[in-house]
Amino acid sequence: MSKQPILQIENLRVSFRIHDEYYAAVDGVSLTVNENEVVAIVGESGCGKSALALSIMGLHPLERTKLEGTIAFKGKNLLPLSVPQLNQIRGKDIGMIFQDPLTALNPLMSVGRQIEESMDYHTKLSSSAKRQRTLELLKRVGIPNPEKTYDRYPHELSGGMRQRIVIAIAIACEPSLIIADEPTTALDVTIQAQIMGLLKELQQQMKTGIILITHDLGVVAEMADRVAVMYAGEIVELADVNTLFSRPLHPYTRSLLHSIPSVQTRKEKLHVIQGIVPSLQKLPRTGCRFKSRISWIDESEHEKNPILREVAPGHWVRCTCYKNFYFPQDNIGDMNYGIS
């Protein structure tokens, strides 16, 4: 059963202007999302995940951003589209869930109106039909007492409730793709699990594709079909979720998996990757971008111009440095992330 691709990102480069010069935050990214597929994007802070997510719907500040490559949604390239043309797609075919439910909602508009608003532009429903549909959506995202909540303002709701509202906004017009940029980072742990459960349930009901950006590898294991690991604006490894957890290849992926505390490692020193993602202006632009963080690996192990290579069917890795890389305590087989 081959799935139809709904989103095909081809060689995408997203650059921001800083002091009259453009710096790429996303560099040469190619990624496909199929119908009803959850693709997770992981990588540490500043590696360009949000920059990638926002570029899909053209939500970057136009005057300071340069987008190159193609982002084809259902076969149609979105990059050359004007804002009014994009508005036909935003909210209707693609929904977006933002990180922080405390700031993602307009404080002066009732939450019901905020959910309804996208229907104003994408449907021809009467106002009573819109209200009806909004009440159904509220129920669907697990809000008790939709009638009452409809007229509530964001500040009257808890963080978890607000994130449910944000989700209701994203699914209001039944989009075929949802982009969720760290949808639970701002919430506390028990609420995180509820929200992820809700997202998974909705995804299975509506058969939407999801791009799920997250720091939480547990969430990845639970929800994703495929995983893209990003480092410094590039995808360094791309594989289906089982392969990625059982046979991670790129040194960066492996160090990411090592940095999750598990029962076994709790008593030992937590493994932390040395260094941080360099700032946008100081990003290495040539060779293997991860080189400086695994400096004990000999220069000759890296490719001059590393490309993403398919090393096994569906398993892509950038650079050859992974071949001779191992952690002193590299013992991935011992780790069990609960992948079924």
Partner: peptide, 13 residues
Amino acid sequence: KDFVKTARAKGVP
């Protein structure tokens, strides 16, 4: 602000 981004993501002109 984020809520303006949310509104744009809804397709509000």
